[in-house]
Nucleic acid binder design. Structure first.
Lengths: 225, 225
DNA sequence: GACTATATGTCGTCG
DNA sequence: CGACGACGTATAGTC
């Protein structure tokens, strides 16, 4: 990893064209070949960047420019960094990162809910997770206490997109005489008012999931063995 | 901006929980208060981060740990960085960045298309850009050669979401007797097959936009004056 | 503050 | 490699 602090101007031509006037910035070159140009704000997002794989060519500048870097990828996207003053330049060997361990994503919610279908109502049972359809897998297909098929869409945050997605699944599933009629359930840790309104309007039931409670139940289960 | 290279382990508890085993990494602290932890790959995306506004507390470590940083925001999200070995630590004054100048984003496409409605078919005319509705603004409202209202949704890349968005607008617009019937046009530089299929199925016409051609036409126009 | 739409989104997965 | 969906999406603009 190479860290350069330099007063520089930058031009990008690729998916769009963009220009950065001259100012002091951090230029970060990673071992994967990526280059990113950071100002002292905007959280972790760089002002400008080039994703790997790409090639970096360093050239001597003429006149005011001390150095000119040209970063290019296969798609023909190009990033030109003109450095007028180099304030810092250091390289560091970091090695391969062991990587991040995540917990609490949608996949886990789905797993937990499939194991605790009664969260969706007394007597609810699982048919299968990731039930395949022509337009993609339905998170959970099950039956309610009356034996009616239910299609469950799970999201961490329930927004309008999720309701649209579930609606498309329901349309498709209801064409299958072995399943129809299919009722929709929109399950999320948090459901936005607009999404709830749209869902309700379409006869889709909304269920708020409590991740910690689901996990707690799961932990109890595990403890039995 | 402060740059620290350190062998560290990291724990995040917030919207999810995550853990990073000990390894050498870059810790980037920006003037806006944000902290990000970078490995030597994954392009510009950090392994872990905390967005501003947040507070950073530095503490002495005990035992193996040389230092323990606790970064916390108002929402109760917490990032704990345990540093076992500090390999580099430097600070740099960058000042406020003049910022990026962009060209070629959706707003620009919309501008160009509004000026060249015949791209959508001979005799097409503009009613207005950003036509307001209860659920958000329609990119372009116009009329075709026969005088039928057309609602145009513009995207750089046309995907299924855009078709859904346009569908919602059309449903609403068609309830207005002064406008109905309203035909939909999905215009993008690139339209994904699934989006095209869905659009066609719903009677929405797809138009591929050539940005350079639109801009060329625009340039020609400008040259006349 | 809530909601909508955009993004050089980026990133994984799967056909 | 392209298409698709998720993301601690972030971010900007509007109401």
């Amino acid at each position: 990893m190479r860290l350069v602090i330099a007063r520089c101007s930058v031009d990008y031509a690729g998916r769009l064209t963009a220009h950065l006037p001259s100012a002091p910035r951090l230029i970060l070159v990673k071992a994967d070949g990526s280059v990113s140009i950071h100002a002292d704000d905007r959280a972790y997002k760089p002002l400008n960047w080039m994703s790997p794989p790409c090639t970096l060519k360093e050239a001597e500048g003429d006149g005011d420019a001390k150095a000119v870097w040209t970063v290019e990828n296969k798609g023909g996207e190009k990033l030109i960094i003109t450095m007028e003053e180099i304030l810092h330049d250091s390289s560091h060997e970091l090695g391969v990162d062991p990587g991040l361990i995540k917990d609490g994503v949608e996949a886990h919610l789905q797993e937990l809910l499939a194991d605790r279908m009664e969260t969706l109502g007394e007597g609810s049972t699982l048919i299968r997770r990731e039930y395949p359809t022509a337009i993609g897998p339905v998170d959970i297909l099950g039956r309610d206490a009356e034996g009616t098929t239910i299609a469950v869409e799970i999201k961490r945050r329930g927004e309008i997109d999720g309701v649209e997605q579930l609606t498309r699944y329901l349309e498709l599933l209801n064409r299958d005489p072995r399943l129809a009629p299919v009722k929709g359930v929109f399950a999320a840790q948090e459901i936005k008012p607009q999404a709830r309104t749209l869902a309700t309007d379409r006869g889709i039931r909304c269920v708020t999931l409590d991740y910690d409670a689901l996990r707690g139940i799961e932990d109890d289960k595990l403890r039995l063995f």
